[in-house]
Structure formats: structure tokens, C-alpha cells
């Protein structure tokens, strides 16, 4: 259990706790000499208690003002599996079926099928660390690496919403890689790239990605959802068509192969094939992993105020118990205005 405060500068006010020893909160009753008052232990004790209560009240209120909390520290945990980033294509075409049409009736879009199958996949791997990133024209960080399955499932659930514009795989990969630690050879990093289309990667971006993969040491699984009639990963080009612009998927596949990392490509043309691919990934990635996580904080401000209530009540009781040496109402004539007897 760690304790901390959000606004430590408020603690500058803590020296105010000596105030009860410097000033008295009670109504002053002036007397000629307090030496005539007999010594009284009970009164002395009461004085100490009230001063203590005053100091405690001030201290607790200052503490409450500084927003104390408990917990919130980072812990190290060990899981089995891998650190797995799901990199999902959110381009508009993902909302079509494998046949390339808008889903109708019982048909399932590529995004929905992926979502359903990924949910099962996540459910089978309770100790994995999942992160979710999506990309279309720009990459989107959906969820950093975590072992909270609820959060991962929620992130995956949201992945079949209406898609956006285009497919920019390079920047998506860059973001996925940035979620891993660079200097941890004991961790096992996996990127599961789910996309239904290839994209041309600039040569200089290719070099940057290559360097990033070398630094973060991630396995790459490319799950290509092939729409009926489109080009595939493993198609042999017709003569004159062997250019990245004509066949981006093929060239992407070739580029990934040159990265020098464990790389598997799956080409799925139906939900069943997607399931099969995911099952293979599941079988391949089983490693021990350690990961760190921040525990949630517990706000103690309310407790501090509640505790401050108790001595405040004591002080209030003392204030209400204050007595006053009241002169009885009478004419404050200093002298009797009697006339002298006739001299």
C-alpha cells in the first residue's frame, strides 16, 4: 500500500498545525491574575486535548486539500503467451462481405467475422497481453498493452463500426511496434495484422520499418482477408503487371519476407479460413512474458475530511461549552448621587 498526494504544494500549509499553541480560539476572559485560580488537572488535560484537536483538524484539512490517495503503483506480473498487438484495418472495405458486397440478411462482413473470431481467440488466451491498434488513412491507438480482457474485448467489439477511408499499413505497423518495449529480449512481441487490402509502402518508409522491426523484434502475422475477385498474396503476376502499383498485396508480402523476422502470411477467403489462421497463430505463440501495470488509486480525500470531522466536533463542543463571567445587570454608577446632609 503506497500513499501519495496529488497536490504536494498544499502541504506547505502543514506548519499551521502549531496555531493552537500560538493563538487561542476561545473567548478571552481577562482576570487580574491567573495565579489565584487553583491548579486543576482536568482543566490542564482538557487544554492539551483541545490544542491537539485543533492541530489535528488543521492537519487533516490541509491533508485533504492536497488530495491524498492510496495505491496507484506499478506492479510487475508474469503471464504465459505473448505480447500481442492486434493491428486492425479500419478501411471502408472491411464492412463488406468476403464477396465484396454490402452485407445483407444473415451475411457477415469481414469486420464482423474478424471481430467474432478474434473474441474467441482472446477468450482462449487469458494470460496474454493484448494491445489494439487500428489504421486507415492514419493509425489509431485503441488500447495499450494490457491483460484486462474486458478492455481488450471492448476494443475488439468496437472494431466493426463503420470504416474510414484508405489503407495505410506502414503507419499502422509503426504504431503497433511503438507499443512494445525496445530493449526487452525476454518479452515476446507479436503483431497480428488483419487487413483486406495491400498498400504501397514508400522505399524510405520501408527502411524505417525495417529498422523498427529490428529494434522491437516482433513476429508478424499477416491475415489477409481476400475479397472475391481481388488479387491475392500468392498470385503469380501476369507479364507486365509485376509492379507494386498493380499488385500491392504481393509486393507487401515480398517486403515482409525481407524483414528478417518470423513472418507468416495467411490468406483467408471465408470466415472458416480466418478461423483456421487464427487457430494457427494461437498454437504458435506460447511464451512466458512479464509485464508491468499500474494499479488503480483509491482517493482518500473523503476519509481525510471525515477524520477531520471528529476533532472539529470536539472543538465545536468546547466552543459551545464556553462560559462567560457576566456582570449582573445593575446601575454602574460609581458613586451614590446622594446629596450631602445640609451642612
Amino acid at each position: 500500500m503506497t500513499l501519495g498526494v496529488d497536490q504536494p504544494w498544499m502541504l506547505v500549509l502543514l506548519p499551521l498545525v502549531v496555531l493552537p499553541w500560538l493563538r487561542s480560539p476561545h473567548r478571552r476572559t481577562a482576570v487580574g491574575s491567573i495565579a489565584v485560580v487553583p491548579a486543576d488537572h482536568l482543566s490542564a488535560w482538557l487544554g492539551h486535548i483541545l490544542r491537539g484537536a485543533g492541530a489535528l483538524t488543521i492537519g487533516l484539512i490541509v491533508l485533504a486539500l492536497s488530495s491524498p490517495y492510496a495505491g496507484g503503483r506499478t506492479v510487475s506480473r508474469i503471464g504465459t503467451g505473448a505480447q500481442l498487438v492486434l493491428l486492425l484495418d479500419r478501411s471502408g472495405s472491411m464492412n463488406d462481405t468476403f464477396a465484396g458486397r454490402t452485407p445483407a440478411g444473415a451475411e457477415e462482413s469481414k469486420a464482423s467475422a474478424t471481430k467474432r473470431l478474434l473474441r474467441e481467440f482472446i477468450g482462449r488466451r487469458p494470460h496474454d497481453l493484448f494491445g489494439v491498434a487500428a489504421f486507415s488513412t492514419a493509425p489509431m491507438l485503441v488500447l495499450p498493452l494490457t491483460d484486462h480482457q474486458d478492455a481488450v474485448l471492448a476494443a475488439v467489439n468496437a472494431s466493426d463500426r463503420r470504416g474510414l477511408d484508405f489503407t495505410n499499413i506502414a503507419r499502422g505497423l509503426g504504431m503497433a511496434l511503438s507499443m512494445f518495449a525496445a530493449d526487452r529480449p525476454d518479452e515476446h512481441h507479436v503483431i497480428l495484422l488483419v487487413s483486406d487490402g495491400g498498400a504501397v509502402i514508400d522505399p524510405h518508409v520501408q527502411d524505417q520499418l525495417r529498422a523498427a522491426f529490428a529494434r522491437h523484434r516482433a513476429d508478424l502475422y499477416f491475415l489477409f482477408l481476400r475479397t472475391a475477385g481481388s488479387k491475392g498474396l500468392f498470385d503469380t503476376p501476369a507479364p507486365g503487371e509485376d509492379t507494386p502499383q498493380a499488385m500491392p498485396e504481393r509486393f507487401l508480402h515480398l517486403y515482409f519476407q525481407t524483414l528478417g523476422i518470423p513472418y507468416h502470411a495467411f490468406q483467408a477467403e471465408s470466415p472458416q479460413q480466418v478461423e483456421e489462421a487464427i487457430r494457427q497463430v494461437d498454437a504458435l505463440e506460447r511464451y512466458p512474458i512479464t509485464y508491468t501495470e499500474r494499479l488503480p488509486r483509491h482517493d482518500l480525500t473523503g476519509w481525510a475530511y471525515a477524520l477531520a470531522c471528529l476533532p472539529t466536533l470536539v472543538l465545536l463542543a468546547a466552543k459551545l461549552a464556553e462560559a462567560r463571567i457576566t456582570p449582573q445587570p445593575q446601575v454602574l454608577a460609581v458613586m451614590s448621587p446622594r446629596r450631602r446632609k445640609a451642612a
Partner: peptide
């Protein structure tokens, strides 16, 4: 009641129940 006595001579304070 509580009396917070203040000595007029020395200005010392003393709480008396």
C-alpha cells in the same frame, strides 16, 4: 463551562473547565 482566562499582568492564557 470553559473559561479561557487571560492574565492582565503577564498576558498568559489558561483554560479552565
Amino acid at each position: 463551562g470553559l473559561l479561557d482566562l487571560a492574565d492582565l499582568e503577564s498576558a498568559r492564557r489558561r483554560l479552565v473547565f
